[in-house]
């Protein structure tokens, strides 16, 4: 982010706080129901203006997968596979030791960063972190342990994001959702499905009758609108059969 952009953002922030406080005072001075509403709205604006400092989000989750540590490690180690199951990632391009990541935020805003692998233990663990100067500073690690008695592989992942302040910070926060742990768990669940079955279960795009207001509302409540993976067929077209990683039964 350029220094001038950061400046405007700070100005905007100050403006929001001032405007918000003004509204709140005006509202309170009216001593009526509308007045209280205006005051509340003002306070909200002022608060939103303030909460833009840097913030760290971290998440941890684990899943047991019916495959060998080798298979799980190999699939993850090819970082270009990550967008297949990490919901917020649009693409990862690997060039030598470095990789370029693009995440898709709300309203198609894009966040870019470059990352490097900082530790790589074959078939056991991988750790990476973003390079200095990235839009979104982040790091992650994942380990692959064989389950007892041949019960597949237990993978455990940890992600840490530090969002910068300002507008971009808010985008980053939205990107991770209000529940980064939830987002990571769902990513790992998709990783498991993909490795075990060659696809990710979905109902997105299926037929249904008229939803009405009631049906629409419950779809939102169940996150069926935002939290469903895009079916692989939609963007892979001809090559989608590649997605079938496992031979069928």
């Amino acid at each position: 982010m350029s220094p001038s952009l950061q400046k405007t953002d700070q100005n905007n922030q100050r403006l929001a706080v001032m405007l918000g406080c003004g509204l709140a005072l005006y509202g309170l001075s009216r001593r009526s129901k509308t007045g209280i509403a205006i005051a509340a709205a003002g306070a909200a604006v002022a608060l939103a203006g303030r909460q833009t400092g840097p913030k760290t989000y971290s998440a941890h989750a684990s899943f047991t997968i019916n495959c060998s540590p080798e298979d799980a490690y190999r699939f993850w180690r090819d970082l270009e596979n990550l967008p297949l199951f990490m919901h917020h990632l649009e693409s990862v391009r690997v060039t030598g030791d470095l990789s370029d990541w693009v995440a898709l935020g709300p309203m198609n805003t894009r966040v870019h960063w470059a990352a490097e692998i900082v530790d790589d233990q074959e078939n056991q663990s991988i750790a990476w972190r973003s390079l200095p100067g990235s839009d979104l500073s982040n790091s992650g690690s994942v380990s692959f342990h064989p389950g007892t008695g041949g019960r597949g592989t237990i993978i455990a992942a940890t992600m840490v994001y530090t969002s910068p302040g300002g507008a971009l910070g808010r985008t980053a926060a939205l990107l991770m959702g209000r529940h980064p742990e939830f987002a990571l768990r769902e990513d790992l669940r998709r990783f498991k499905s993909l490795l075990e079955t060659g696809e990710i279960p979905t109902t997105k795009g299926q037929s249904h009758g008229p939803r009405g207001i009631h049906g629409q509302a419950s779809q939102v409540l169940l996150r069926e609108k935002q939290n469903m993976p895009a079916p692989p067929l939609e963007h892979e077209d001809e090559s989608h059969s590649n997605l079938v990683l496992r031979r069928s039964a």
């Binding site: 079955t197 060659g198 696809e199 990710i200 279960p201 979905t202 109902t203 997105k204 795009g205 299926q206 037929s207 249904h208 009758g209 008229p210 009405g212 009631h214 079916p231 692989p232 067929l233 989608h240 059969s241 997605l243 079938v244 069928s248």
Partner: peptide
């Protein structure tokens, strides 16, 4: 298709034909 439209409210509607969404 037979659609559930609410408690004790079943209706038959014309809806789009289903399509393949996943490889299997």
């Amino acid at each position: 298709a037979v659609c559930w439209m609410g408690k004790e409210n079943i209706q038959v509607h014309d809806v789009p034909d289903p399509r393949i969404l996943n490889p299997r």
